[in-house]
Design a protein around this nucleic acid. Sequence first.
DNA 1: GAGATAATTGGCAGAATATATCTTTTTAAT
DNA 2: ATTAAAAAGATATATTCTGCCAATTATCTC
Lengths: 161, 161
Amino acid sequence: MPVTPLALDRFDRHILDIVQQEGRISNQELADRIGLSPSPCLRRVRALEEHGLILQYRAEVDARQLGYQLMALLHISMDQHTPERFDNFERHIREIPNVIECLIITGQAADFQLKILVRDMDDYQHLLLHVINRIEGVTGAHTSFVLRRVFEHRPVPTERP
Amino acid sequence: MPVTPLALDRFDRHILDIVQQEGRISNQELADRIGLSPSPCLRRVRALEEHGLILQYRAEVDARQLGYQLMALLHISMDQHTPERFDNFERHIREIPNVIECLIITGQAADFQLKILVRDMDDYQHLLLHVINRIEGVTGAHTSFVLRRVFEHRPVPTERP
DNA sequence: GAGATAATTGGCAGAATATATCTTTTTAAT
DNA sequence: ATTAAAAAGATATATTCTGCCAATTATCTC
């Protein structure tokens, strides 16, 4: 996607600032706020999309109201650190909709950190023991429950380097 | 916001499924996809917004292209577990734009897990030693660097309980 | 199950918005 | 200063949004 790195000026940064918080803002309102007319504003938004600076637009939904009362961070260790093991684990983990994030990390006993949404403890217990622990190569699993989300999904800063 | 829990039918769930992945979809297209005409479709979207089921719309931007090459998970332990200590920490941490997520967790030596975006190691070193470690009450800090994001920001599942 | 009531859908019209094209202005370089 | 290139602004057309009303569907009561 990024043919050329694309130099961002203050208009572009301002657009990114705004759409990170108001993804459905109209182009007219956006143009007003950044101080351009609608045409060049829309052109810039399209360019940011084409260059992959804007990856996608998403609605954030309230997991609680959908019945997902419990969030857990699960640290997973693998027996072997081979690409095959990791690929296989990733393929399996992708199939579990409750796993909303999967990171490969250093600095822990674990290899993966998963962010998991479940309805309750029973739900979690089942997922851990009967689904995740059964994936080949998983030797360890350590759970941290999230007591409170102080904040999540904050915008990426846009000031110059 | 949630006056009444709001019973969700298959149309509502379908809407949530779609807007979680295509936050800027037009109402007409959305209506087409869920199999309703635009009017009731828009009414449902508005109702989901009012009830707080849709919290907000957001553009996801590519942090890498903005110069944030490094993501870290930082586990913070506090000396005292008093509301004052925690409140004070949260107030300070909110002021740091590089911290894009802050969770209070169990199951670790730590009390907080922070998700941090920085440009490079120098940047991280400065943030850790000169900003975060200096917040009152912080006694421990353990860093995990993110080697790879297998996936992030996956949609919340919407099937019935 | 019939009838009444409430809730929800669909269609339509006017307003707002998006989008493509063209012209003008600004910027940069020689 | 002149030219070329890039970006902004204006305008017209097409699309989309949004509020209102009639028609349909679902629900409840007896």
